[in-house]
Design a protein around this nucleic acid. Structure first.
Lengths: 206, 206, 206, 206
DNA sequence: CATGAATGAGGGTTCATTCAT
DNA sequence: AATGAATGAACCCTCATTCAT
């Protein structure tokens, strides 16, 4: 009984945490870290400000936790695709498609995610950076592995597999940004597949 | 003499403006818009706070002006390369090389630049966004033109030239980011050239 | 219990508000709107600056609210006297006496009040002006009514009753100012009554 | 020659001083002491800010000097009327008329003047107050004298002549304010004369 | 345990005044 | 003598965080 009681409580806690995350995500994504106040988040999530501070020791902690959770979700999904058996080319193509699908369903988080992964992430005094980076590095490594395998199997030319991965990421990301800016004008899926194929053909053995 | 006097003044003004820009760039680039105070910038530039406000009507104005100036500098240089006559392939290769060179000399600005161009730029209440975007769009258009010409000349396959440009930009940017993160580990020039060639080969007519 | 709790809270809030009003009144009255800082008021009222801003959205709001409350208090009292039944002459005499009594107990507010009602009130960007004026106009109207009634009853000569009211107000105010400048030297009550009588006699039917 | 030279210079100085006064008067009268900056005044008067500080040691000094000059002008004119020989009643009536005429031509200054003379004058840290008061006291004294003479001549009842003066001042001022608020609706001259007469009749011997 | 009133450090900005030219 | 660039104290206000209830 005690067990269940604890578990019930634990679940309730998790629910509250998620509500705070949802409010935070929406606001941070719309206005940026510095243009959102803790009161605003608490209000939107329908909690007292003090309650929020029971869950997160400060604003940065809330931001980091929220984003980290999202990042883990993304990477779990991406790694799942990358871990499927099969010929590297197919896996890579599936990866590109999955990336599009996942991000399309999480525009808000992705926006924040890229603010942290790339370019300038001054929102936080660093720290999240590292954690998210290391998650991302895992994906990059898996991609690198795929290219390495592809090279061994003579599917791809003998080029640095890591940089092949980097190139693929850059290429797909830029279509993602296009799409985020104007969803209508720039359908991600078709374009990215085509261009990815071009690239893959470019690195393919002749 | 009056002329010289004025010109001297004007030059002095420009010098001061540049010093403020330098201080602002350094600080904004290191800590982000919201984590830098006007007092900090004034102090670093060795001016009284009031003097800074003689030059810029507020913090946002300083930020925008500084970044806009840098952006114009970049785009002037990039467009110069893109406007050279020659076969599209060579021009594109020169562009990629120039991009690397320019950005290598302006890491700080580039960091801020990408914070505004891509992902999430919540630093400003918009406005800069538009201006920088439109600068960038010019470059993208020129790239698109090059690809279009290339297609007409049967150098490239019949694909959407705009998305070719987008793909190239994404690819090169991702090497730029790699390089910015760890200058030693990831020399931009060699890698980006190689991968660009792979991509160009991919889109090339067989 | 919940009720009581709320009412207790409400009362506490009101108490705090009043303390802020008191501090603000004292300081504004002594030094003027622009020569008093919010920190000063907060300090004098023994609140943190942030607490003051929980009650009033800015300095102007505090000033206006405080003065408006006082103005309403005054006018409520004055109108009460003006609304009593009785022959106009007696009512007018009572009014003059009441005005003296009320103002004697609120020198500070009266000072501010007149700064807004008369002469130049540049303290605010207008707005209060209107609100206080309209309060004052009600009093003036009631006075006018009294004179009008007096005229109909052949107590006063057939003169413009509005200007009679204006004249009475001016006359009594000037004694008020005398008294405020030097309480000892210029006892309001005796002098104002005498001179009011002179004036009333002047406008009386012969 | 030296003399003329000096005098010429002196005149030029006076002219500049007057221009500054004019700009200051206009701005202070429109916006109030605290809402006008020294730069604004300098700009309006077409002088460099430093030049203004050559003439006045600070903002307060400029304000005081300007207002004092105006005050002296007014009082000189008023006292001239009060010093004319003739029966007190006529002199008093002339005084009331003159007051109206003078103020009608100097609305701006009058506004400021009353801000200092009456109610709350927090524009300055005091000082001007005294000087203007003492000027005003002279006028009040002359009025008092007139009433005293009138009493001796049995024109007026045996009442305190000082308070008669105070009453007259209050009465006329209140018409002045009416007129300043809405020049069209409340013509000063007719109304004030009528009401003054009422008052004078009230204090007249029967 | 949840609450939200209270706190006060810190930031952006203005403007009176000075002084080198 | 006139100028106006430079100064920096001081102000209004926000918001992350705490803690008594």
């Amino acid at each position: 009984m005690g067990d269940k009681r604890v578990s019930r409580r634990e679940k309730e806690k998790q629910r509250q945490r998620n509500e705070m995350f949802a409010a935070a995500l929406e606001l941070f994504s719309k206005k940026g870290f510095h243009n959102v106040s803790m009161h605003e988040i608490a209000g939107r999530a329908d909690f007292a400000i003090g309650t929020v501070y029971k869950f997160f020791k400060n604003k940065e902690d809330l931001y980091k936790s929220m984003l980290m959770e999202k990042a883990q979700e993304f990477h779990r999904a991406l790694k799942a695709v990358l871990d499927t058996k099969g010929d590297p080319l197919t896996v890579l193509r599936n990866y590109v498609a999955a990336k599009g699908a996942i991000f399309a369903e999480n525009v808000e988080s992705v926006r924040l995610y890229y603010a942290e992964t790339q370019g300038a992430s001054y929102n936080l005094k660093a720290g999240l950076d590292r954690d998210i980076q290391s998650l991302y590095d895992e994906v990059l490594e898996k991609l690198t592995s795929l290219f390495r395998t592809g090279i061994r199997k003579r599917l791809f030319r003998k080029l640095d597999p890591y940089y092949m991965a980097v190139a693929l990421e850059g290429l797909t990301n830029s279509f993602l940004f296009c799409w985020m800016e104007d969803t209508e004008a720039h359908p991600y899926e078709k374009n990215v597949s085509l261009m990815t194929d071009m690239f893959l053909e470019g690195v393919a053995t002749k």
